[in-house]
Design a protein around this nucleic acid. Structure first.
Lengths: 247, 247
DNA sequence: GAGTTAGCTTAATGAATGTTAGGTCGGTCG
DNA sequence: CGACCGACCTAACATTCATTAAGCTAACTC
């Protein structure tokens, strides 16, 4: 008999890297009713301005928080990236309206969970409620680190920091290992993340390549010199709170 | 008999701009046991690396989240500002350790609340638990907007955006009005917030002054042309979620 | 196989920002 | 009073980044 892989397995890995889950918690998580959905690259998963009655969790691929710029509808800024296991838009569970969109970066698969289901879970499982809260706090900690990187690092180091973070986050849920990661991010999208022009992103990529830190072929990246990359980026993963402590 | 002003009154204003509070909620908030503390400009309120057993709420003045840079201990980045009514470091309530410090900007007064008290409150008052969660979500939304501003605005517009946001936030809790605000922020601190050199911040301040948008004397700012300032900054306050809706 | 497109790459120029240096002004303290 | 100090201000020069323009390659279309 084949082991049934619960839809929430990545999310459980994400949580178990930071706390231990009791049998009741695990059972509840695995019993969550979810609705699967697939999106092509660039498609909108949750539109800005909406007030969704369900929230989504990443299953495969990447998604991003995209902010349209007022007065410049063709331009946008990407303020977050989400990897498998991330509970992406709990924002909609608490706030009155989405002030940004969730979009697919490359082909992506998500699971939607009704807010009614989440409300019932937070009422009956206070520990899970705290852990859901924690995931949004961790998102905020990552936002702050992006602010630190934007303010203190130059383009190459800034890009290096993003690569270090994404690699660690993918590794945490078992989607990357051996210094290899699959990252279907266009340079144009990197520009929207880092706040540079696409041309300048290209310079940064070339710089990391010329320094012998990474190899980058299509969407496949190999980190040749992790220590060098982390040193350049002054990367310190403590903001990702990868400690198993009771919460 | 003098009306007793509960210590949590600013926090209550903050919440009431976004939801309505029932009598039980209000009573509970006003009964919270708090411990008052005053800090001089620049003093550390909550140090990085600590795991505090209480969290603090701003009462008077300003505080900031300060990130020390690895390898450059003299440099720092400020990733958030907090005004009266803000529940500043719920981060410590959920996360294992502070990855940044809370510092006083100008003289500041805060109220500390024990985590035991908060745990009891979140258990018995689910609506208040959601509202506490909301305050941290709002912080995250502000972080994202700072990322958008950093990526899409030039120095003058970037500074203008910060001023617009701070004015609205101060106004929300009744600490600023009539286009006047008291902001004891040094240009050196503005540089740590915006990610520019102090000299460049000075250029941006001069530019806003030369355009006739603001008057800035010491720590007292007058917004002469709100519409012009908001237009330059492309300021849209919807991310502050100033809507009274049930949550 | 030629045309077309999207993404990547490079070069040249100009604008935005950092750095260094030094000046002014209003406090505080001997 | 005079020396000092911190915050603010300004100028001159260096670096980083944006913009414009254009070439390249692989994938797809006709």
């Amino acid at each position: 008999m084949v082991t049934e892989l619960a839809i929430t397995e990545y999310f459980i890995r994400y949580l178990q890297r930071r706390d231990s889950l009791g049998p009741n918690d695990l059972e509840r998580l695995r019993a969550l009713k979810t609705e699967h959905a697939s999106f092509a690259a660039g498609e909108v998963i949750v539109p800005a301005g909406s007030s969704p009655s369900r929230s989504c969790m990443m299953l495969r691929g990447l998604s991003a928080r995209s902010h349209a710029l007022v007065g410049r509808p063709d331009d946008r800024v990407i303020t977050a990236l989400h990897v498998p296991g991330d509970f992406v838009d709990l924002h909609a569970f608490i706030m009155s309206r989405m002030d940004h969109s969730i979009i697919a970066i490359g082909p992506a698969e998500v699971e939607f969970i009704d807010h009614a289901e989440l409300i019932e879970t937070t009422r009956s499982f206070p520990h899970l409620a705290r852990l859901l809260w924690m995931t949004t706090m961790l998102d905020a900690a990552i936002h702050r680190q992006w602010l630190v990187a934007a303010a203190s690092l130059r383009s190459s180091a800034h890009l290096a920091h993003l690569l270090c973070e994404i690699y660690v986050r993918l590794q945490t849920v078992g989607v990357a290992s051996d210094r290899q990661l699959h990252l279907p991010l266009l340079q144009r999208e990197l520009a929207d993340i880092l706040g540079y022009s696409p041309i300048h992103v290209n310079r940064a990529v070339r710089d990391l390549r010329d320094r012998g830190l990474i190899r980058w072929l299509g969407a496949d990246i190999t980190i040749i010199d992790w220590n060098g990359l982390a040193l350049l980026a002054r990367f310190d993963p403590s903001y990702l709170d990868l400690e198993r402590t009771p919460r």
